[in-house]
């Protein structure tokens, strides 16, 4: 293992904080913050999955929300039929069945769309993955029985032996352990021969091909793994929100996921987790700051301005600022300070 680098320390401390904080929130009667952290961790899992492609493969997927959606509907659709009848072959509350369905469906979707998408490069790849994502979005939109645009409420969460996902803390711990495992998988993958080929293809695809590697196959495998991890995150998200709608698959959500990875710092282990943390927490923080500012101004102008709804303004400025002045996302900032 050797001595930890500065980045290593930050990663360790951050992950420890994520492990300790939610139980504290729970015991101090702040269940909302448990929810917030759960959402953060679940999205971080998807972001870690995306980062395999984006950070290490140089393949910018703009359609990853589709996998999350597929994973979530893999919980919702069997549960819907178990509650309301019909489609007996799929009706089930069984968590393992739903999870298997989520993984299989997202892997299959990744395999089929990836096989086509990987024929293209660069920004064309970005757009074709978005096209596939939008197709999945409109597919679920067209399913009248599962609510179409209105979405589907999951009345019963996935049933697993020994543990109950109805308990917010249990659900959180499952998500947290999954995140750690996902980060570990990514770390192992990236440092394996497979990861080397993938990164080699990112740098210079032709050279890797000349060296005798079928990079297309490597990239396709990476795409399937990445999509399955996102599908797994979807399985958790469905269980967490107990409400799913086609909106979860929309390109804006794929965009957010992508922004999380870039903001945190692509091709780092902690980056996606950091990015998703910022994305989830920033709304609460900025609304708080704007509200505080509003209160400060109120005596001066005699009325509340309702500044809270304008929190997008400082957020947008912050994103521009990060891109202009920080190289390599927030992890880049840390790295530079570490030197």
């Amino acid at each position: 293992m050797g001595r930890l680098s500065a980045i290593g320390w930050v990663t360790l401390v951050f992950m420890l904080a994520l492990a300790i904080l939610p139980p504290i929130f729970m015991w101090t009667g702040q269940p909302f913050y448990v929810d917030l952290t759960t959402r953060l961790v679940v999205l971080a899992i998807a972001a870690v999955g995306l980062n395999i492609l984006l950070g290490f493969g140089g393949l910018v997927s703009f359609g990853h929300a589709a996998f999350i959606g597929i994973g979530a509907y893999a919980v919702g659709i069997p549960a819907y039929h178990a509650t309301w009848g019909g489609m007996d072959f799929i009706a089930s509350y069984n968590g393992f069945f739903q999870l298997a369905l989520a993984l299989a469906a997202s892997a299959l979707f990744a395999l089929v769309t990836g096989a086509i998408a990987l024929r293209t490069k660069g920004v064309y790849f970005l757009m074709i993955t978005m096209a596939f994502g939008q197709m999945a979005y409109y597919f679920f939109l067209s399913l009248d029985i599962y609510g179409g645009d209105d979405g589907l409420t999951i009345d019963v969460r996935s049933e697993l032996p020994l543990i109950s996902l109805d308990n917010p803390l249990t659900l959180y711990l499952v998500a947290y352990v999954s995140l750690v495992v996902a980060m570990f998988i990514k770390h192992t993958l990236v440092n394996s021969r497979f990861g080397m080929v993938l990164q080699g293809a990112k740098g210079n695809n032709e050279r890797m091909v000349t060296l005798g590697f079928n990079t297309y196959k490597y990239q396709l495998v990476a795409y399937v793994i990445s999509g399955s991890i996102a599908g797994y995150a979807g399985f958790l998200l469905g269980n967490f929100t107990t409400f799913i709608s086609p909106d979860m698959l929309d390109w804006t959500r794929s965009g957010e996921l992508m922004f999380m990875v870039i903001l945190g710092g692509a091709s780092t282990v902690l980056g996606p987790v950091l990015g998703s943390s910022i994305f989830i927490l920033i709304e609460e923080v900025l609304k708080g700051v704007m509200g505080w500012f509003d209160g400060l101004l109120e005596p001066l102008i005699g009325r509340e301005l309702g500044l809270e709804v304008y929190w997008h303004l400082p957020f947008g400025l912050m994103l521009i600022f990060v891109v202009l002045f920080v190289r390599g996302g927030l992890m880049g900032l840390l790295k530079r300070r570490g030197k």
Binding site: F259, I262, L263, F315, G316, L317, I320, V322, V323
Partner: peptide, 10 residues
Amino acid sequence: VLATFGLILV
């Protein structure tokens, strides 16, 4: 992409 997304929000 990230910066112009920020620009949209602004």
